[in-house]
Nucleic acid binder design. Structure first.
Lengths: 215, 215
DNA sequence: TCCATCTGACAGGGAGCCCTGTCAGTTTGT
DNA sequence: ACAAACTGACAGGGCTCCCTGTCAGATGGA
């Protein structure tokens, strides 16, 4: 009786890479394809069929990584927003000097990122509102950034006299306003240079932080 | 030779109403149905078939008034935003007293309107970003409100020292931020009373108007 | 070499929607 | 009363998309 060699019900290398390796590479390609389509053709054109074609994979592999179209959309938005957050954090931590300088650096880094990644910027700013699942994720992200703004302001300028709820509301107003500003500029509706945009953002931030203390 | 009576290629009364009358009533019903569906079930569920069912009309009449689904969506958003603008304008013109009081009245009226019209508020604040045609209209509306804010601020507090582009940007930041604030509150993510919301809006407005003069 | 696994191409069912067309029944003017 | 106009119900073609399934060919381990 020859034993069946090995269960072999598991995996195997292929093309010199492990199963997990190939699997996650396929997922990455699908996420990148989804983000690219979202940024270039919009949510409506980002169908599962189109994503697979863009990624050069077949539908079967789509369902290997995602339960459906929605999950891929959210994953793409997550990837883009991680990129944004990393950009902002890097600018803040890399900059030494006054609080003003650090805020300025963060805003400038974000503005540059938008200019350099128009597709991803569209994903984050525009298409993130196009689908219910994306909207939910977008609100979370805005809230996160709003909290970041509040804590940064407190750290840079001292604690706020506002209630936590009010401070968060002010932060959200600022963050969402700024996002719309960038969106309008991308749409060509606002004739502002990058420097002007950064200046407006920095001034507004300082006003916000200042008023949070002497209101 | 009996002449063919009348061209009769025109119209006729029906149910005691003229053709134009019936036609525009059908259109109103379709617009109202579209807004209702947008506000209660979202853009994705607002199909032409669903709109017709909701309005109690058949598809043929849909195409009598609209070239397609998109046109109906935009018409519904227009109807809602007209309602919003009328609410704000009425509050401003009906209120006598200080500039602060008028701004306060406008914000309070808008907050009350949102509470009283949750469906329409969702149309204006959320679903207006769900479709390309709606987004275009939404940006127009935000721009209009931003300009209104700028001119009101100038009228109430004196001319701004900012460049027109910068003033418009600040107005847009304020308006869009406020919209997101109301949206977050509707989503239950922001524990703010109506009064607090109005206060935040009024304070931010005054800060904006004040800083526009002594920057 | 041989067989199990992996991969890509593609077919096709099922569903929903857009839009057109038909048709019987109702209302109006003559 | 009669013909023309109007209305509502509904069928169905065409399209796209989601998702499953099949199948031949490529690859790797024993």
């Amino acid at each position: 009786m020859s034993t069946p060699a090995e269960p072999s019900a598991t995996t195997r290398t292929y093309g010199g890479r492990s199963a997990d390796d190939r699997r996650s590479e396929r997922r990455d390609r699908l996420v990148a394809a989804t983000a690219r389509l979202l940024g270039e053709r919009g949510e409506g054109a980002t169908t599962m069929t189109a994503v697979c074609a863009e990624a050069g994979l077949t539908e079967r592999y789509f369902y290997e990584s995602f339960t459906g179209r929605e999950a891929a959309l959210v994953a793409a938005l997550d990837a883009v927003s991680d990129d944004i957050a990393a950009t902002a954090v890097a600018a803040i931590t890399d900059t030494e000097g006054t609080a003003t300088a650090r805020v300025h650096a963060a805003l400038a880094a974000l503005a540059t990122w938008v200019d350099d990644h128009p597709g991803d910027a569209r994903v984050a700013l525009v298409e993130s509102s196009a689908h219910p699942a994306l909207r939910a994720r977008r609100r979370e992200l805005l809230g996160t950034f709003a909290d970041l703004v509040v804590t940064e302001a407190a750290e840079l300028y001292g604690p706020s006299t506002w209630s936590p709820a009010r401070a968060r509301a002010q932060g959200l107003l600022y963050v969402a306003g700024l996002a719309e500003l960038v969106t309008a500029r991308m749409a060509g509706e606002l004739a502002l240079s990058t420097d002007e945009l950064v200046e407006i953002g920095a001034d507004s931030f300082e006003r916000l932080a200042r008023d949070a203390r002497d209101d």
